[in-house]
Design a binder for these strands. Structure first.
Lengths: 148, 148
DNA sequence: TAGTAAAAGGACATTTATGTCTTTTTAAGG
DNA sequence: CCTTAAAAAGACATAAATGTCCTTTTACTA
């Protein structure tokens, strides 16, 4: 697959929390999971990972939940990919070869590198805050209708 | 971006057979699997799928094995991706949203579409024959050293 | 300070991708 | 024919990703 389901859940989850940033409340995992139609406990683990990575915050207890912190809006999509897909996402060889890089390219390497780099740059430059700025009327809807 | 192991096996398998096209013999699954260091039976299924799709040929029995046919060299990498990843590989939404296309784009869609299209075009235009033309001394080696 | 609501944590279950083994079919060669 | 070597087919096994459930910790509230 292009990106894992975990990535989609993570991005939609953090976006949902960020979208509600002016409501002055913490957002519970129950609310997020039900609005995004995503498995509650699985999402919980992913949100927890983002909290652990410091790009989102949470508090336990009554009135607890998730909320953005000083890093959230500046977090790049690439950082979330790193979290869910691991550090080799943009460098794994397309032919599953051991050694494949600019010095020792596989038969596909040079042909696609330009576009892989382009994608990586876009992902690295685009932040949660950037996506929020696109907040058109349909934006919330566009993240709440998940696939399957 | 990031393709399955099955795709890597398929491409390396068909390339290996194509590379030996002038030897005037059929190439057995045992030879391919051992040269590519790929699971024999798993590779067998993938090769069979390519035969079924008509982009490669095979004969059973003694002296049997795989060999290229009139379509092999003109087969695009994209066609093999279609076989191993399914028809939605280039159109699945990056946020795992149900509806995401040019008319109804998700927050990421427009930002990455240029590069996704670029990749898709490269994959669609590049054929097995094109890769063969790169047959430098290290080419066979470059497909035989698989990862993990 | 007891009750409650929330995240965190961990064990278990299911599904999908990957990998292995055995049997069947088929063709060539003696 | 009979043996042999090969792909094809299908059953089974393992690993990784995804999903569910239960318990623990923590903070608010009454």
């Amino acid at each position: 697959m292009v990106l894992s389901k975990s990535f989609g859940y993570a991005l939609r989850g953090i976006l949902y929390v960020a979208l509600l940033k002016d409501e002055g409340r913490n957002v519970s995992i129950d609310e997020i999971a039900s609005r995004l139609s995503v498995p509650r406990h699985f999402l919980g683990k992913i949100m927890k990972a983002m909290v652990k990575a410091g790009i989102l915050s949470s508090v336990r207890g009554q009135q607890g939940g998730f909320f953005i912190n000083e890093r959230t809006l500046g977090t790049s999509i690439g950082a979330i990919i790193l979290l869910t897909e691991g550090k080799n996402y943009f460098s794994t060889c397309l032919l599953s070869l051991r050694q494949c890089n600019a010095d020792n390219p596989c038969p596909m390497h040079n042909r696609v590198q330009e576009f892989r780099n382009g994608l990586q740059n876009i992902y690295g430059q685009t932040t949660i805050g950037d996506l929020l700025k696109e907040d058109k009327p349909g934006f919330i809807n566009s993240i709440t209708t998940g696939v399957k």
